[in-house]
């Protein structure tokens, strides 16, 4: 009796092992033959062996062998369900159910866009500098060659904390802070929040993000400004984008240049384009050769050194790049807006 039990147990293990290997109809048929063949199947042989079992054990032995037969039959039936007629394993799982994803948060689009810009300049050997958001009149204006009470200040409408302290209207004061500490060569970019006393409208807000660049070294020319900014703009907007430099005025650069790129929305084809107003050009950044007075203010000799600088509004550039029509979307923090940029 113990013998029979061991035999059945051995066959059960063998069946289970073989069942795992079944992948197609052919191997399934092989397994069926091995166990249930009327001539030499293991189950058939077990039944034949029952004849030699002593009478007092017959009842239990019969139950044991019958149970094993049922086990084998059930096993084969289950396997049949898994083996398709074309010979490939059937779908054990519904593989069309959606996968399980772990949610990853979305970075803010302005941070993302800022990093894209930073990466272009980091690749050109620039480093990143930052400075305070509450500034003094000296750093925000005077050192940058804005005389007191000059109307040039009107374009940088200011939020004041005290008569001398203000919320910086641009990232340019960091130029001064860096040049005070560091001697040329200087090659930096300066990202950060800036503030202006602007009445909110679709393209103006009292707070926005700016990024600024500064190069000071011997022999720096306007040609370097052009070449480097053109490269930057192409890295951001594609090889083929048209770029235009035109004269402008900023107190801290001389000569100054406004940089326009061709309108990627209408390509200059739409006379009523909301983005470029039909001119085909979109103003993207201000730039120029560092004003000699600015260099003097930080004790850098303008006869020996020259430099160029630029400043760009991250918000408006991102609006242009992504086709966003309202600047305030960036600060409403509607997750249905923000989360789209997780895939940018």
């Amino acid at each position: 009796m113990a013998d029979l039990k061991d035999r059945v147990e051995g066959l059960r293990k063998a069946f289970e092992a073989e069942a795992l290997k079944v992948g197609d109809a052919k191997s399934l048929e092989g397994l069926r033959t091995a166990f249930l063949s009327r001539k030499k199947g293991h189950v058939t042989l077990l039944f034949e062996g029952l004849k030699s079992v002593p009478a007092e054990d017959k009842r239990e032995a019969g139950r044991l062998v019958n149970a094993f037969k049922t086990f084998v039959q059930d096993g084969l039936q289950t396997l049949e369900g898994k083996v398709r007629t074309d010979g490939r394993p059937a779908q054990a799982l519904d593989l069309t159910l959606p996968g399980r994803k772990r949610y990853v948060g979305a970075p803010h689009p302005l941070v993302l866009f800022q990093q894209e810009i930073e990466n272009v300049f980091l690749g050109m050997g620039f480093t990143i500098e930052e400075g305070p958001e509450i500034e003094t009149d000296y750093y925000n204006f005077e050192a940058l060659n804005f005389p007191p009470h000059h109307p040039a200040r009107d374009s940088w409408d200011t939020l004041y904390i005290t008569d001398d302290l203000l919320l910086r209207t641009h990232t340019s004061p960091v130029q001064i802070r860096v040049m005070e500490k560091k001697k040329p060569p200087i090659r930096i970019i300066i990202p950060g929040r800036v503030f202006r006393r602007e009445t909110p409208d679709p393209t103006h807000l009292p707070m926005f993000m700016q990024i600024e660049g500064l190069v000071v070294d011997e022999g720096i020319t306007f040609a370097h400004l052009k070449g480097t900014l053109e490269y930057f703009i192409r890295a951001l907007f594609g090889e083929k984008i048209k770029v235009r430099f035109r004269p402008s005025f900023f107190p801290f650069t001389e000569p100054s240049a406004e940089v326009d790129i061709e309108c990627i929305v209408c390509g200059g084809q739409d006379k009523s384009c909301r983005v470029c107003g039909g001119t085909g050009w979109k103003e993207i950044l201000g730039s120029g050769m560092v004003d000699p007075q600015v260099l003097k203010n930080v004790n850098i000799d303008p006869e020996k050194y020259s430099g160029w600088a630029f400043g760009l509004g991250i918000d408006r550039t991102a609006m242009f790049a992504f086709g966003i029509t309202e600047m305030r979307h960036f600060y409403e923090n509607d997750l249905r807006f923000l989360r789209q940029f997780g895939t940018k």
Binding site: M124, F222, A223, H224, R244
Partner: peptide
């Protein structure tokens, strides 16, 4: 200042005629 005059020259020479070069790195 001299820089102011250079801007005048540049404006009428044409910003578009000034070549584009990479900023050298020392």
């Amino acid at each position: 200042r001299e820089a102011d005059l250079i801007e005048e020259v540049a404006r009428f020479y044409g910003y578009d005629r000034i070549p584009s070069e990479f900023t050298p790195v020392r």
